[in-house]
Design a protein around this nucleic acid. Structure first.
Lengths: 153, 153
DNA sequence: AATTTTCAAATGTATCTACATTTATTGTAA
DNA sequence: TTACAATAAATGTAGATACATTTGAAAATT
């Protein structure tokens, strides 16, 4: 359904506004569907995001501040997210050897296992997005990069 | 900067995953910038969203449930958002004549005024997005519509 | 070396959000 | 018409989030 119907707004100030609104709306839509999936595994979206970052390390530990940098939602409180993962035995924490301010985090076997359970479900979900071609998807991604670049901080 | 650099992830499972991640990342990026702007006027993003929906009514009252339907973030608690706007004298609430369960909400003069102050700032911001053409913006919006359509609920 | 600044993580706190429940009203079926 | 379901809004509450502050450690400056 078109964004006009979804939010019952017939006109937009300009194409850029329409696009921006659709972008936020679609992101919320996507996050909501995916959250439902993660909820089955008692994970929040942010916890899942951290877990995936941990797995991406392939055995190497990663410090809390580096996790924060890689989060999609930069405002997350990574300390507390890691706390939650520790409670579930999905992650382990240890002091960083060469910088005692920092804390190294690593995924556990159980953390890997829960991700492996979720993987096919996420993949299945992502595959539904192939109403657009792979080329279009990459083009869309490139356009998003451009948009962010254009607004200097 | 490319999404790869922004979240320090070099590879993605497939183009759809890359696009989806970029979508969420860019939405967060956009919301964060805009929130900073609204904060200057002591409004949260959600409060601003409600105010704009109220203005869109052009004088006609709108019930709380209809506001919810039009929100970009459907999970917002519209009752409490309207409470906040009442406290700031940006909105008024009255019982709906033909359905005493419902509550009619209408924007006040002060609500209109604060929006008018914000308008040029938002427009200025949106205009920075014109690194892509209007046609590309509309195409991007259409592709987002397609994506949502493709995943049946 | 001592002092100051910067940095990493954790924590305190008010606010916000998600979700279930409640209250009041309307609609529908027995 | 009574009983039951459906709807609209408000509210209670646990947990999450945003943001400032604190704690401890490292780096830079004096």
């Amino acid at each position: 359904m078109s964004i006009e119907n979804d939010i019952k707004q017939k006109t937009f100030r300009n194409p850029y506004q329409k696009m921006a609104i659709n972008l936020v709306y679609t992101s919320n839509w996507l996050l909501y569907r995916q959250s439902e999936l993660f909820k089955e595994y008692d994970l929040t979206l942010q916890q899942y995001n951290v877990l995936r970052i941990l797995r991406g390390q392939q055995g190497r530990p990663i410090r809390v501040s580096d996790i924060s940098e890689r989060m999609l939602d930069k405002s997350s409180n990574t300390s507390r997210l890691v706390d939650k993962l520790l409670l579930k035995n999905y992650a382990e924490r240890s002091l960083c050897a060469n910088d005692r301010r920092a804390v190294d985090v690593i995924i556990t076997k159980q953390g890997m296992e829960v991700l492996e359970q979720i993987d096919p479900r996420v993949e299945e979900w992502e595959n539904k997005l192939n109403v657009i071609t792979e080329e279009q998807a990459l083009m869309l991604s490139d356009m998003l990069d451009l948009l962010r670049e254009s607004v200097q901080e």
